[in-house]
Design a protein around this nucleic acid. Sequence first.
DNA 1: AGCCTATGCGAAC
DNA 2: TTCGCCTAGGCTG
Length: 282
Amino acid sequence: MPEGHTLRRLAGALTEVFVGRRVQVSSPQGRFAADAEVVDGSVLVDADSAGKHLFLEFEHDHLVHVHLGLIGRFDITTGAVEVPPPIGQVRLRLAWVGDDKASYADLRGAILCDLVGPSKRDEVLARLGPDPLRGDADPGRAWARISRSARPIGDLLMDQAVIAGVGNVYRAEVLFRHRIHPLRAGRTLRRGQFQAMWDDLVVLMGEGVRTGRIETVRPEHLPEAMGRAPRTDRGGGEVYVYRRTGQPCLVCGSHVRADVLVGRNLFWCSQCQRTFRSRAVE
DNA sequence: AGCCTATGCGAAC
DNA sequence: TTCGCCTAGGCTG
């Protein structure tokens, strides 16, 4: 679940439910108990995301810095009759009880849940690259890094200091959609290729925020258009290459390939994504 | 019921 | 470089 769109969506939902309200903050699991006590009963001023980071800002400059990591979840329930006993290891619980309904949000399995001050948020924001989900993002900062780097573009896209919020699914899919080989050095890309990928990420991730799913397949390649069975696994949307190792490419039919790059699974179509030397060719 | 894997990254070794 | 997080979905049996 957690790429940038998940955190952005979460920030929006938490804003809707809790911002402007005096919130009960607890840590049923206990690991955040001392810090939860500091902000318990204070007003949530803002909930916002940057890349894959989430900041809950309470009054008096108390911020809760959350990062879901790989297995973290932050589940929000609204319109409950009452706030139920926690299930599993709930590191952080936000709760608000109105006259006739209760809302609560449970954080589990997060890699990070810290009580911090504004300077910590500044520090995190400073080390993140531009986030395609933020209207004020400057893609030129990402291009400055990519255009000078010998590292593979597949590695650079996952580097949060280059572009914030892109994870393994969006990486694989945006490279496929632009027919760029993941191992191609960043500095061999043309500016237009980068800009097209960036613009695409803005759209794809924006859709991810709205739908809560990663859908990257163009209409002409959807199951209905091609007469294949829709995917029911993965719990996600239709994708071209992510976790489709060995299956036929939706465009050319050759087998989707997989390898490990910088410790992460990498998926691509070696037929569609062959553009290793376009700079030499142009 | 049990096993495996994962859209990530900070900390420990 | 490896481990922890300790979740949840999918698959195996």
